[in-house]
């Protein structure tokens, strides 16, 4: 299911984010094959390390700061005032918007379920699955650009073709190594009933989808945590395991910085050895 909906989103609605990552952080003409290789290799290694540690982080932040690290090593100008500042606002805004939506959606699902105990549960179960499929579609829209945006930046392909290729790679990733984070998020961070789950999931997907439609890569994980917090707020409950959250929030701040530094060092070492200036 993840693979199917993810590929749909990647192919048909990822072009805005592909364009942002490809040409919005540094100029397209400043992008070199070595720089692009270093950016993506760094982001991939840091993401793999987080998956191995079971820390759900933002691959969008990793990708953007990998681009920044390599760009600094290349001596290429970075669009600080426009892109990076706006991306940071988006990343702060994502959990906030998801929290507000999660709060209202949970009230709505509670109202809908009133007086429909067994039938209501069944409907909510299906609604949660639909919301999860929508989240997979949104993942395709939102995160494909991080992996293949630079292909477009280098003029190698069109945004739609880049999205399709990236979508296939992501689908294979979900099918082959998705279990560690699935276990952590599904059973280790939050405890929700069906109404809250539907509210949080809808809030996450709508928030991330809106950001993708506007061309800004954002974090599905940060949107999810915001949505869960909002759903819990609607009930006056603490829904998030604070011990798990603490390590996740630390990793949110740490991993983009690590990605930027690794990207900078890796580019400098390779450029020196390959005599590329």
């Amino acid at each position: 299911m993840i693979a199917f909906f993810l590929l749909l989103g990647a192919t048909f609605e990822s072009h805005n984010v592909v364009t942002t990552v490809g040409t919005g952080i540094i100029r397209g003409e400043d992008m070199t094959p070595l720089g692009a290789m270093v950016m993506m290799l760094t982001a991939a290694l840091v993401t793999a390390a987080n998956t191995w540690m079971k820390w759900p982080v933002s691959t969008s932040q990793l990708a953007c700061f990998s681009v920044v690290g390599a760009a600094l090593a290349m001596g290429a100008p970075v669009f600080w005032k426009t892109t990076i500042v706006f991306l940071c606002i988006t990343w702060v805004g994502t959990p906030l918007m998801a929290a507000v939506l999660g709060y209202f959606f949970t009230h709505f699902t509670d109202w809908f379920r009133k007086g429909k105990s067994e039938r209501g549960d069944k409907i909510m179960g299906y609604a949660l699955l639909v919301a999860c499929c929508y989240a997979a579609y949104t993942l395709g829209c939102n995160n494909t650009g991080n992996a293949v945006g630079v292909f477009f930046g280098l003029g190698m392909t069109t945004p739609m073709k880049a999205g399709f290729i990236g979508g296939i790679a992501m689908a294979i990733g979900a099918l082959t190594w998705g279990r560690p984070i699935l276990e952590k998020v599904g059973k280790g961070i939050v405890q929700l009933d069906l109404s809250m789950g539907v509210g949080a999931k809808a809030a996450q997907s709508i928030t991330a989808h809106t950001a993708a439609a506007l061309g800004f890569p954002t974090s599905m994980n940060q949107a999810l945590i915001g949505g869960v917090g909002g759903a819990g707020g609607a009930r006056g409950l603490k829904t998030v395991d604070m011990a798990a959250m603490k390590e996740i929030v630390i990793s949110w701040f740490l991993t983009p910085v690590v990605a930027g530094i690794v990207s900078f060092i890796l580019y400098s070492v390779l450029a020196y050895n390959l005599n590329i200036h």
Binding site: I2, L6, P33, L34, A36, M37, M40, L41, A43, A44, T47, A48, N50, T51, V57, T59, A63, L128, C132, A135, A136, L139, N143, T144, A147, V148, V150, F151, L154, I165, G166, G167, I168, A169, M170, A171, I172, G173, A174, L175, T176, W177, G178, I181, L182, E183, K184, V185, G186, K187, V190, L192, D193, L194, G197, K201, Q204, M220, N221, L224
Partner: peptide, 27 residues
């Protein structure tokens, strides 16, 4: 570069499995 991009795509797909389907799985 192309191999690195596809590798990054693979890691993204595996990383976000929880964010997309984790709730249906956990509930």
């Amino acid at each position: 570069m192309v191999a690195s991009g596809l590798f990054f795509g693979w890691t993204i797909g595996s990383h976000y499995t929880g964010a997309t389907m984790g709730m249906a799985y956990g509930s």
